[in-house]
Design a protein around this nucleic acid. Structure first.
Length: 277
DNA sequence: GCGACAG
DNA sequence: ATCTTGTCGC
């Protein structure tokens, strides 16, 4: 006989090893995905491109105001990690950010999570949810989508938020709860930048990659929390507008649309995995 | 070569 | 992402 099979315990197979394993096993798939990202990226729009206005007050002058903001998030089962549930919520900015719409899409996913390719795992579920809304001409169809994942802060400048934006045509904002190390940015580096700030815009720092291009901002959305979030353009919106809208949507550390989608997609498992699934 | 790596 | 209780503070 040959060597015994190399069975490694869960303990010594840490996150970094897992990433390496995934990368080597799916190399050709990644090449295909990269081509798709590069292709979709040609349609990306990095400036305000919408017909509504962000004015918080009741303006009657021009167009109509931003009112329905969508939030999306995907959770998965702790029992079966391949079982996931995507949640789409819509909040009404004119009704104190009340949730006026929610829908769910659960599935058994075989696509692995590989850093830089989150969209290929999560986007299809979310797009289905949006299409269902559009097909029935729902009056609360979101004018803007906040995404639980990055936009421009991405190895190829095309994260989940960009991906969803281009495929749905909806203006999108990317919200990262953790920094994706891109363009020379590091967690500690950004943390120092934020701490070294003394006066103006104390809770916000613009993130510039080593190419000199603006990738997004790190901001402390909640004065009580030292944790920051990472905001970047998804599609059809400028970074300035992203920041303005995020600030309007922040009751707590995480912008309300994302937070609600997160809470509700988790609650979906609490309610549904006990009986069927 | 090793380490880093959104959710 | 998920594994996880109490706990410190407003």
């Amino acid at each position: 006989m040959t060597d015994p099979p190399t069975l490694r315990s869960n303990d010594d197979q840490n996150d970094r090893d897992q990433h390496k394993y995934d990368s080597s096993q799916h190399k050709s798939l990644e090449q295909q995905w990269i081509r798709e990202q590069e292709s979709l990226k040609t349609k990306l729009i990095l400036e305000d491109d919408f017909h509504w206005s962000i004015t918080a007050s009741t303006e009657m002058t021009e167009s109509f105001p931003l009112r329905f903001i969508g939030g999306v998030d995907v959770s998965f089962s702790k029992i079966d990690p391949s079982m996931v549930c995507a949640a789409l919520v819509v909040l009404d900015l004119h009704q104190n950010l009340e949730v006026v719409y929610e829908d769910y899409n659960s599935a058994h996913l075989q696509i692995p999570y590989i850093p830089g390719f989150l969209a290929f795992r999560e986007a299809p579920l979310i797009i289905t949810l949006l299409q269902n809304m559009k097909n029935c001409s729902h009056p609360f169809y979101p004018q803007l989508l906040m995404v639980d994942g990055n936009g421009l802060i991405h190895p190829r400048g095309f994260g989940l938020a960009c991906h969803l934006g281009v495929l749905t045509e909806i203006p999108t904002i990317g919200i990262g709860k953790n920094l994706h190390h891109v363009g020379g940015l590091t967690r500690v580096g950004v943390k120092h930048l934020l701490e070294d700030k003394t006066n103006d815009q104390k809770n916000l720092v613009i993130l510039t990659g080593d190419t000199g291009k603006t990738l997004g901002v790190a901001m402390r959305s909640n004065p009580c929390s030292s944790k920051s979030i990472f905001v970047s353009i998804g599609h059809r919106i400028s970074l300035d507008s992203c920041v303005k809208i995020v600030q309007v949507c922040c009751r707590f550390h995480i912008p309300e649309p994302i937070r609600q989608a997160d809470i509700k997609s988790r609650r979906w498992f609490r309610i549904n995995e006990g009986s069927s699934v």
